[in-house]
Amino acid sequence: MLEARLPHFYFHTDNGDCIRDDQGEDLPDVEAAREEAVAVLGEILRYRGAAFWETASFSVIVTDADGHTVVSVTAKASDAPPEGWTLAESGT
Rank of each mutant, 00 (worst) to 15 (best):
T63K: 14
T69G: 10
V71E: 06
Y47L: 06
S57I: 15
F9Q: 00
V38Q: 03
S59W: 07
G84L: 08
A80T: 01
I61L: 04
L27S: 02
G84A: 06
A65L: 13
E25I: 15
I19M: 08
A33Q: 06
D21I: 07
S90T: 09
E43S: 10
E36A: 10
D79I: 13
P81E: 00
S78E: 01
V70E: 05
S72I: 01
D64H: 11
E89M: 06
L6Y: 05
F58A: 03
M1Q: 05
T86F: 03
R5M: 09
D22R: 13
T63I: 13
D22V: 08
E31M: 11
W53E: 06
P81A: 09
D79N: 08
P81F: 11
G42Y: 03
A51R: 14
S59P: 11
A88T: 03
V71I: 12
S72N: 12
L2C: 00
A39T: 07
H68Q: 12
D64K: 11
D64Y: 15
A51F: 10
D66N: 14
H8L: 15
D22G: 04
V60S: 05
A65M: 09
G84S: 04
E43H: 14
I44V: 11
Q23R: 13
V30C: 05
E31P: 05
E54V: 07
H12E: 00
L6M: 10
G24Q: 05
G84E: 02
A88Y: 00
M1Y: 02
D22F: 11
D22Q: 06
G42I: 01
L45S: 01
T86I: 14
I61V: 15
L27W: 10
E35N: 11
D29V: 13
L6Q: 06
A80K: 00
D22E: 06
D64R: 13
F58S: 02
R48G: 00
T92D: 01
A50W: 03
D17M: 11
S57E: 02
L87S: 03
E36N: 11
V40L: 12
T55M: 13
A39G: 02
D22L: 10
W53A: 11
D22H: 13
S78M: 08
M1L: 10
I19P: 01
R20V: 15
A75K: 14
R46Y: 10
F11Q: 00
D29C: 14
E3I: 15
E3F: 12
E3L: 15
G24N: 08
N15A: 12
C18A: 07
G24M: 08
P7H: 04
Q23K: 14
E54S: 12
A65P: 00
A80Q: 02
W85S: 01
E89D: 04
P7M: 05
D66K: 15
G24T: 06
M1C: 04
G84D: 01
A88Q: 05
A32H: 11
G42N: 12
T74E: 04
L87H: 03
T55H: 09
E35R: 14
V62H: 06
T74L: 07
R34S: 02
D29I: 13
